[in-house]
Amino acid sequence: MPNQGAWVRTRNYVFWIIGLLIVGIAIGVQLITKPPEIAPFDLLPPLIRGLATTIQLAVGGTLLALVVALVAGIGRASKNRLIRTVTGIYVEVFRGSSVLVQMFWIFFVLPLPPFNIELSALQAGILALGLNVGAYGAEVVRGAVQAIDRGQIEASVALNMSPGLMMRRVIIPQATVRMLPPLGNLMIELLKATSLASLITLSDVTFQAASLRQTVGRIPEVFGLLLVIYFFLAFPLTLGVRWLESRRQWA
């Protein structure tokens, strides 16, 4: 039976993740029920309010990015030249500048003529995050689909499967496993990038911290806490992705 070590490592990851989650939830519950008076934790309630927005951004952005990545990724792998080119243009354009630039463009330029599309800061943030990370995700999806062994396709043809059936039952299941770790990493990047929405006036947790700085001062505590909050969000996800990577069975 291979790899007893893998089981031990997995167990460690799981302990870490559960540990962090428990600590995080315990703290959160404590704060909601009884706002503490001791510094620096008295700063937490206003920050937690911003956290709800951060999570909305993260979840919304991730969902949009996943959809876009699947559609564009399969398009990039398509036999149809037009589809390949159009999705290729989308991917290169959105990878060609940073999320911040795209957020600014969506928030400041889109409301103007000739587009006249006015979006709230939250919508702009989710859209920018989704489209940007979706472009990177598309390349991950494309890579995973194209990495499928040719023999799988030939076997499917030999069994007289239709192209749709082959995609659904043979290619996508195998590609999905390959895709998960890189997509997981992209999701963590997206989570960190939600902080940029504070620059388009969205009251996420970073924005709350910045305004606390102006009202209360106490800068090291405010930004220190902010860093810790992001760490507690991102690091368990990082461990989760590493666990996924270690579990790849039939690579």
Binding site: A155, A158, Q174
Partner: peptide, 13 residues
Amino acid sequence: IGMVFQHFNLFPH
């Protein structure tokens, strides 16, 4: 027609 391949090509999942 049915075919058996040199490298098996079984579905690993």
